[in-house]
Write a protein that binds this DNA or RNA. Structure first.
Length: 309
DNA sequence: AAATAGTCCAACCGCACCCAT
DNA sequence: TATGGGTGCGGTTGGACTATT
């Protein structure tokens, strides 16, 4: 038996949104927010059954009174409409060359994780980027077309910009010590920005003479590994990559990688004799050490068999 | 001018994850 | 621990628009 549908599909409207619906949804969300429940939102918005809408929101003559009878829309549809179209600060079209570079680089690193890519381009939605990729950028990557910039061609300015953005997000994304599965390496106080536990003997900068002849290949594979979410309490249901069985990884391993992979591009690293992956995040040295201490010091030991050498 | 092909993009669908119970 | 509802995400679709024949 399948799960119950999220709404009564026979009694919801589908297809393009009209200006009245947009205005109703926008007004409700600006006043009340989602209330943490998109499913119930259309009914609640419908409670404002008769009201005057802001004429500036719609393409009707000014001062015209619009009477709304609520939203006969699925909650998911409302969410999508808000996030992709009505939300303040949305940028539409006009992708710049730098945008292209960022999208191409991130797509090359992490694949079609559009929401992650969108998080690097303020004001852009995942849907917008996905469409842009499918209709424009992808074609530039077809055999014979190499106009999409590769990461090595990205200007230092752009690369630094991405790293700067990511470092800010990294701090913002760190869970509290109470909720994070600490192990030895990630038990710290995010309020004080104190560095996590790190054993100096285990934290080393990336060495180009390491065991791995092509560090970029290894990172590429680790990106694949990190592209999977943990589920629940940590020991069950890990997804597989096309060729790698991840069932042996602990929650903290994939959490650490999950945190890092969406946040960094162009990082290098290698698996040393101790089985630990040491990463060069392109930061000042103490930041590298911090990040290694946070996510990669202990946990990646488990990853070594999957990363190969 | 009409027909056809190609492009774009808003919106839908289904699935996996998260979290409360 | 199991279950079910809500949410977020990526893939896909369908219709509007534009270009070409």
């Amino acid at each position: 038996m399948g799960r119950a549908p999220c709404c009564d599909k026979d009694n919801v409207k589908k297809g393009p949104w009209c200006p009245e619906e947009d205005a109703t949804l926008k007004e409700y969300l600006e006043k009340h927010g989602t209330g943490g429940n998109w499913i119930a939102l259309p009914r609640k918005a419908g409670d404002l059954s008769v009201h005057v809408l802001d004429p500036s929101l719609i393409s009707f003559p000014r001062n015209m009174m619009i009477i709304s009878y609520g939203l006969k829309r699925c909650g998911k549809s409302c969410r999508l409409r808000w996030l992709n179209y009505l939300r303040p600060g949305i940028k539409r079209g006009g992708f710049t060359e730098e945008d292209d570079k960022i999208i191409c680089t991130l797509h090359g690193s992490i694949g079609s994780r559009w929401s992650v890519i969108a998080s690097q381009l303020p004001g852009r939605t995942d849907n917008d980027i996905k469409n842009y990729w499918n209709t424009k950028l992808k074609k530039t990557l077809l055999p014979g077309n190499s106009s999409c910039p590769k990461s090595e061609n990205m200007s230092n300015e752009t690369t630094n910009e991405i790293r700067h953005l990511n470092l800010q997000q990294f701090w913002a994304s760190i869970p509290t010590a109470e909720t994070y599965d600490s192990g030895n390496s990630a038990c710290f106080d995010t309020n004080s920005n104190a560095l996590p536990y790190s054993s100096e003997s285990n934290v080393q900068n990336y060495d180009s003479n390491g065991l791995v002849p092509d560090p970029s290949l290894i990172i590429s594979r680790s990106m694949q590994v990190s592209g999977f979410h943990t589920s629940g309490s940590g020991s069950e249901n890990y997804s597989k990559t096309s060729s790698q069985d991840l069932s042996g990884l602990s929650t903290s391993s994939t959490l650490a990688l999950e945190n890092s992979y969406g946040l960094w591009s162009g990082i290098n690293g290698s698996v040393k004799e101790d089985g630990i992956m040491h990463m060069d995040f392109g930061c000042e040295s103490h930041d590298d050490e911090f990040l290694n201490g946070f996510g990669f010091q202990e946990d990646t030991r488990e990853l070594a068999p999957y990363l190969g050498n």
